[in-house]
Each structure stands twice: as structure tokens, then as C-alpha cells.
Nucleic acid binder design. Structure first.
Lengths: 234, 234
DNA sequence: CGAAAGGTTGACCAAGATCAAAGTGAGTGG
DNA sequence: CCACTCACTTTGATCTTGGTCAACCTTTCG
């Protein structure tokens, strides 16, 4: 499995005494094609999972934050690349150790299965985005998603104190573009558009302030996960 | 979890004596928003999983075939819709039964986890498609994917006998469009384009013949493990 | 038969891509 | 400390892919 948010205590424990590794921005943690023999847990920083076609087109598959799990696949080689966006620290375990732990500990296995299911559900959202939403909508979703992820990573689940709508964007415009299935120029223009509409303010090119969460959510077409919203066809 | 291809004996067994349900084309097996209290295994036919936004945009998330598993989520309600494309038969089990089986049987749990991982890896492919490929490329990928899936469902894993490149398309052009993130007219034109290039032949609107697998695969851009792309920043 | 749904084709349009140029800012060396 | 460089970002002009609108055709089914 590629990368799982929302880990559980069982996994924090599994990485408790594990050796750590420091990564500089841009540095590759693991490259597509390499033997998949390690798994990781992010201790700090932001990483990025991507896949690049032979013709150079790149799709950024996800951004990863503290406590996200990285590296398990069904194959014996990674088929995606993971690199640091900000300076980062990860804990490392041999894949075999981790897998045997899942075998020995049904509770851990169950937890891991649920993590995987949640990631899978997130990917379905992303597919909806790429298939159906416009550039502007995708960017709105992205900003809300980033805000949410950073909050989780910082342990502020409730709508609390810290800098109301400030979101930091350590990745480049091209990283964002490749994540959203757009070009970097389009991303830039979409930021402009959101600012013109008064939904955000650009503090600098790596920092925006969300001015109107309500209208951003409306634009994103968010899906209140509590209530059903979709109808069957015919 | 939504829908898992490639089940294992453990699961065939789990559904061995389960009651079955017949579905007519278009009939809804489960609707987004309904309580998620059943899981299913497809015995026959083709189904389709989709999600529709409040504004009516619909994304078809996957097509499902014999032995695909359907229905487990982390939430207590389905957030997607599953309906039959062809006449279909499914085996049904209460979700609680299935989950308690996973709890009791670590082997089944492990198998299920791996199934989930494989689905997850397929979704990453789909994300690459939607984010990076052109209309024509997406259609080429789709035809190859359909061919592959039908072959698996029919138990012909090796490149064997049956009607060399015939692929049947029981779904409508609109279903295909919503699966590929395109409009139905674009899908229609892309079929025309593939035919003009000699890659396929349209036998009728629900049946095409793949004339040149090699060039189709080249067009689909089968992803090999390319090198990492962004170098360390400093 | 006739109606309705689905499919194809054509004409036109627009969102986003591409190409080009200029602005910005952080790191480096003088 | 400053100025130079290089990478990144923004903005503008133009082009293209795929979307939209509309007509027509085909098949299915009542």
C-alpha cells in the first residue's frame, strides 16, 4: 500500500524505537522501481507521492503529513516515488518486520485494514475531482484539504485558535498542478481568480489566507460527509 | 470498502451458501446514503459503481465483474451507488457476519487486506489517467482494461482462444464518458478516431474488435518505472 | 408502426494548454 | 552588503482539446 493517513496507536507503537531518517526538500525517500523492502512513518514535514510516465507526464498522487504511513504494496517493487517537500523526518522499519507484525497481531492487522479502506475512500473523492470538477473547484477542494490535513497533523482537530484561515503551500505551483491534473499557469490564474472573488488572500506565493470558508466549501461542492447527497439514476 | 476485484478462495467460501439476488440492467443494488449493512459478491454480470454530485455531475468509479467484492466501508452508510449494467446475480451477506468472520479468521483478514491494497493500486492508475491522459489515450486504456477484466471474469487469464480482440461494451456511451471524465460526444468521436487509425473496428455500438493491441498499448502509454523527476532543491 | 432512448455527426464555443515574456525572491559569490 | 543568478511565479497572447448545442440516424420496445 502506498500511503495511509490517519494511523493508529498500534502503528505509532510499531515505529516506537525505529531508526529515523532526515530528508532535505526534494530528496527522494523511495523511487519507483526500487525493491519494496521498507515501510515508513512520517514524524515531521511534508512529503509527496508521485508517478511519472515514460513521456515525462507526472501525476502527484498525494501529499503526506505527520503520522502518515508509507510503503506497503502488494508487489515487490515500488511503482511510485516519494520525496520530501519540506525538510522531513521519517521512521523506518523493514517491510518484513512490519508484515510479520501484522500476521502476529490481528488487532494491528484490523487497524491497518481500516486505514487502507479510508485511504481508498479518499482516492475515490480524488477521482471524482479529476473527472468532474473545473480548475477553480479543484483548487478550492485542494486548499480545504490542505487546511484539514495540516490541522490533523498538528493535532488541532476542532476548529480552534490558530491563524484562522492561514494555509501554507510549501510545494511549487507545478507540484500543485500535477496534483490537480492542470498546468502550473492555470493554477496561478486560478489563485488569482479565487483572490478576485474574495475567497482567499495571497500573503506570499507560499502562503494563502482562506477568507470565506463557506463560499470555498460551496465552490468545492463539499460533500458534507455526514449526510447523504447522491441519487440513484433512472 | 467499495468494490474489490480478485477475490480469493476464502471469500468464495464465505459466500458459499449465501442467498442470491437477481438484478435487471439499470437496477440499483445499493444507493448512496443507505445504511451500509450488507456486502456482496458478484456471481454473474456487470455492475457499475458511481457517485453523483448534488449538481448532477456523475463520476463512474468502476465497472465490476464476476467475483468482485462489493460493499464494505469504514462509514455506516454507502457513499456511492451500485447498479447493474447487464442482467446480474449477486450473493448477499450481512455486513456484521462478514466483519466478524474477518475478526475470527486472521487468514481471511489478511487476504481481504491484500485485496484492498490491489484495488487501491488500481485507483492510483485511474488517477494518473484522469489527471494526465488525453481523451484518446483514456479510451485506449479503457478498452484494454475491459478486455482484461472480462478475461479474468471468464477465467481466461492467458492469451488464449476466444474471439481475438472482441470486447463487448454493454454500458452506454454516457456511462463510458462519466467513467473517463469526458462527454458522450467526445467518447463517440474518440471511437471514430481509433477506428480511423486502424486500431479498432466497431462491429456495432456495443461491440468493438481490437485490431492492433501493440499500438493500442503504446497509445495507452503503459507506465514503466521512470526515473524521479525533481532533484533536491539545495 | 411510432415513440423514445441512445448514438453519431457537425458547427461552434470555451476552459484550459501552450508559448512567451517579464516580475519576484532566495541563495551565492564578489 | 550588494549584485547576480537561477528557479519559481505571474501575466499576457494565442491555440487546441474537448465541451456544448443541435440535428439526424438507428435500434429497441411498446
Amino acid at each position: 500500500m502506498p500511503a495511509l493517513p490517519l494511523p493508529e496507536d498500534v502503528f505509532l507503537e510499531a515505529f516506537a524505537r525505529a531508526p529515523t531518517r532526515e530528508l532535505a526538500p526534494g530528496q527522494v525517500l523511495l523511487a519507483a522501481g526500487a525493491p519494496a523492502d521498507e515501510v515508513f512513518n512520517i514524524l515531521d514535514g511534508m512529503l509527496m507521492m508521485s508517478r511519472t510516465g515514460s513521456d515525462g507526464r507526472r501525476q502527484v498522487l498525494s501529499f503526506l503529513f505527520r503520522d502518515n504511513f508509507i510503503g506497503l504494496t502488494t508487489a515487490d517493487r515500488y511503482y511510485f516515488t516519494i520525496q520530501a517537500v519540506t525538510p522531513a523526518r521519517v521512521a523506518c522499519r523493514p517491510r518484513a518486520d512490519f508484515e510479520s507484525r501484522l500476521l502476529r497481531d490481528p488487532e494491528a492487522d484490523r487497524t491497518f485494514r481500516n486505514m487502507t479502506l479510508r485511504v481508498l475512500e479518499d482516492l475515490l473523492d480524488k477521482i471524482y475531482s479529476l473527472g468532474q470538477r473545473t480548475a477553480l473547484e479543484r483548487l478550492a477542494v485542494f486548499l480545504l484539504y490542505l487546511r484539514h490535513s495540516r490541522r490533523l497533523a498538528d493535532g488541532l482537530v476542532e476548529d480552534g485558535s490558530p491563524a484562522l484561515g492561514d494555509v501554507s503551500l510549501p510545494m511549487t505551483r507545478e507540484d500543485i498542478a500535477d496534483y490537480l491534473g492542470l498546468q502550473k499557469e492555470t493554477v496561478s490564474r486560478s489563485f488569482g481568480q479565487l483572490e478576485k472573488r474574495g475567497l482567499i488572500r495571497r500573503l506570499d506565493s507560499h502562503r494563502v489566507q482562506l477568507l470565506d470558508l463557506g463560499r470555498l466549501r460551496a465552490l468545492a461542492g463539499v460533500v458534507d460527509f455526514a449526510s447523504p447527497q447522491r441519487l440513484p439514476r433512472s
